[in-house]
Nucleic acid binder design. Structure first.
Lengths: 141, 141
DNA sequence: ATGCCTGCAAAGCTTTTGCAGATGC
DNA sequence: GCATCTGCAAAAGCTTTGCAGGCAT
């Protein structure tokens, strides 16, 4: 239940916050730019300012409710934090984003950090490629 | 020899291009923002416009001479392509960037791409943490 | 009632682009 | 000489911020 999450973050339960959380929960595309969230809200006739979308997303990131990723392209990508860490594989043709977890990679990263004298906090692994799925609209034949 | 590389890229060998390549080759910090490159040039009394730095770096990236990375923070990071792929581990305290290669991780990435029906083109693996080195100016004690 | 929120518009940053003059070949 | 390149200034994205009014508690 979203209201609880918002409260736990020390934030007031306001309409914009609830709606933004809903978009992130329901979106078929789990990975969205701030602009994507904004436009989705407009499509639903929820008129929420773009500045508010940015502000709220940042607050959610700070609260740990949402993750911010930096893919190619300069725009930040936001994703609801559903627990469970995962990495990403992105199709350069159609923009599709899929998630994966690989325990071996995770372990090796820790070993590498240790070897280099780093206390690991976080990591970002993004595989870029072309998906060869039937419905990739930019499919390479 | 840089002139050859520039020519091979189909670009004229101009002073700005040679100087920018020199900065990337000689920089102790192998990972620089466009602004870093620009300021380094100014320090050497080479007055090259920031727009030119951006334009030339982009041309070098397109030519495969330079790599562009997207770390946290929004600014693109440029690095001379010295052959040999590697990944990065970044200290959030002091900004230090170290490089590493892990064959197991590389292999697993290919396996993951295949499993998801992607033709892998590229990938970006960045580990963020805090280095605990003697000379880290922001060292956590 | 009060303090936290929102919307708007303006500003901030990084990066790109148009154009006139300069330069490499 | 001619095409390509550079510098400047302006513009273009994305994101943040100041402020005045609005809303949750």
């Amino acid at each position: 239940m979203q209201d609880t999450d918002i409260k736990k973050a020390g934030l007031k339960v306001t309409l914009p916050r609830v709606k933004i959380l809903q978009v992130l929960e329901q979106g078929d595309a789990h990975h969205m730019t701030a602009e994507d969230v904004y436009k989705t809200l407009l499509d639903r006739n929820d008129e929420i300012g773009l500045a508010t979308v940015y502000r709220v997303l940042t607050q959610f990131v700070d609260a740990g409710l949402v993750e911010r990723h930096h893919f190619e392209g300069g725009q930040a990508i936001f994703e609801l934090n559903r627990g469970g860490h995962h990495d990403h594989i992105v199709c350069r043709q159609c923009g599709r984003v899929e998630e994966f977890v690989d325990e071996t990679i995770e372990r090796h990263q820790h070993a590498i950090a240790e070897k280099h004298g780093f206390e690991i906090e976080d990591h970002s692994l993004i595989i870029y490629g072309n998906c060869i799925k039937q419905d990739c609209p930019h499919r390479l034949d």
